[in-house]
Amino acid sequence: MSLENTCEEISQSESQVENLREHKENGDTVKTDKVKVDILLKATGNAPIMKKKKWAVDAEKPIGWIMEFVKKYLKLEPDEKLFLYVNQTFAPSPDQVIKNLYECFGTDGKLVLHYCKSQAWG
C-alpha cells in the first residue's frame, strides 16, 4: 500500500500538500528546489529541551536523520536512545520520509514531533 493512497482520506493534509507544492514552484529564489518542512520539536518525559524548537528540514530526509541530529544537538551519550513521536503516540520507523509524515500528521503548516530519551528499549 503506497503512502499516498493511505493518506488520501485526509482532505486537510491534501491541501497542505498543495501548499507545499506551491512553495516549491514559487521558490525560484532558492538555489536548490528542495522542499522544506517546518518541524517543531517538543521534549517529553525526562528529555532535555532544545533552545531552538522550530527547524526547517528537507522534506525528502528520513526521520532517522532528525533523530541523529537531535541526539547530536542534545549531546546525548552514545548508549542513550532517542525516540521521536507524532501525535504523542506513534513513533515512525527511522526510514520513514518526513514528507509522508507531514502529509499524514502535519497541522497548521508544521509537523510537531515529541521526543523522549531512554537508556534502553525493553
Binding site: 517529553t44 518525559g45 525516540f83 515529541h114 531512554s118 537508556q119 528499549w121
Partner: peptide, 18 residues
C-alpha cells in the same frame, strides 16, 4: 522483549492516545 524499561518509556509519553 525485556519488560523492565517499558513502563519508564511509556510514562515519558503520558498523553499517548494508545
Amino acid at each position: 522483549m525485556h519488560p523492565c524499561q517499558t513502563l519508564e518509556l511509556l510514562a515519558s509519553l503520558p498523553d499517548s492516545k494508545n
